[in-house]
Design a protein around this nucleic acid. Structure first.
Lengths: 199, 199
DNA sequence: TTTTCATGTAAGCAGGCACTTACATTAGCG
DNA sequence: CGCTAATGTAAGTGCCTGCTTACATGAAAA
């Protein structure tokens, strides 16, 4: 008997359906059916719909690979480094698309602990990036008169909004070649700004 | 008898409750109560919950004041102009906060015509800003090798994300003085970039 | 004054929901 | 084989939801 399997399949089904229909729109019947089990099995495992959802959130790890990535950036130019970070960030979001969608749409309506997961993720990303930018600043590669914190925020905002507009809003999804081109364009603007200096 | 009043109050109550609890979480009973009428009156006016929601969306105008604003920008430096645009944009979002919240969270779950309203709004903002940046580019005030379309997107993404993180996620809301300071910081980075050129 | 029209009161219906109870089945393990 | 533990079948409970029906009220328009 594969006890673990059932629970796992239920959690996956929950993730899928809630990301598609929202917490209130996803019924326990449908979740169970999607997982290939009876509704009763769902309740035997989790007790209630809310506990199921909380366990889904709790079981979730965003494993910010950003930190692991930073040592690899040493030999690269800051432009190359930011491109690499951006690409990895976007791919992580794409992989976790369903959960990202949930956190995005349920944040305001389902206050209890979804906020914790979300805030933790955002905060970790921000501080990691801010630390990286602070390093660049110390090396003289970043303007002295801007704050690493705001720099980090704007970097992530642009990437996240790009992800949302491409992946969540459009059904098509991002094509890799197009994505890389646009990442390059975004990072170019992010680094060099928009103002014309050639005079 | 104030026929118009009742309908208007119902629409306002719908806006408020759906923005707080989502479409599925807001009940017709509660909406009617919030509007100070009987549930029956709600159904006499709108026939069904879905029609009520659609009428809310249809009745809604985002009146993009961006277009009206553009003539006023003539004497200003591009930095001042962008700051003015940004401030107005953020204030519009704040005024329409409830509807913005709805479009944000219900977009993927309530597909039918909420997308139209949202897409129309986004598209209008983007094209207006892109046209403005194209003008700047012709005047030689914007780098030649970046696309006005992407520039416009990034500009709006940063502002929108800022709004979301300040206004929607935190309960406190934006304080005007802090907002102005941060807008200046964001536009500085947006215009001058992040890279250190002083060598 | 009589009519009309927006609203209210009250009761309820049918369906879906989360969740439960009682009992049967199946498969692996000692 | 017999025991245990996970799952299934089936029926149902109580609650809430969107929505309806029948009748009453009250104020403005005729």
């Amino acid at each position: 008997m594969k006890k673990t399997d059932t629970k796992k399949r239920l959690l996956e089904a929950t993730l899928k359906l809630i990301s598609e229909k929202g917490y209130m729109g996803a019924t326990t019947r449908e979740i169970a059916q999607q997982a290939g089990v009876t509704e009763l099995t769902l309740f035997r495992h989790f007790g209630s719909k809310e506990k199921l959802f909380k366990e889904l959130l709790g079981s979730y790890t965003f494993l910010p690979r950003l930190k692991e990535l930073i040592p690899e950036l040493d030999g690269l130019s800051s432009r190359e480094a930011l491109e690499l970070i951006a690409t990895h960030f976007l791919l992580t979001l794409k992989e976790r698309k369903a959960m990202v969608k949930i956190m995005y749409s349920e944040y305001t309506t389902y206050p209890e602990n979804i906020r914790e997961v979300y805030n933790k993720f955002i905060l970790e990303m921000r501080t990691t990036m801010a630390a990286y930018f602070e390093g660049l600043q110390r090396q003289g590669m970043l303007r002295k008169n801007i704050s690493p914190a705001m720099t980090a925020k704007m970097f992530l905002w642009v990437l996240f909004s790009y992800f949302r507009s491409e992946e969540i809003m459009q059904s098509t999804g991002m094509k890799k070649s197009i994505m890389e081109k646009q990442v390059r364009e975004m990072i170019d603007i992010f680094m060099s700004g928009t103002v014309n200096n050639n005079t």
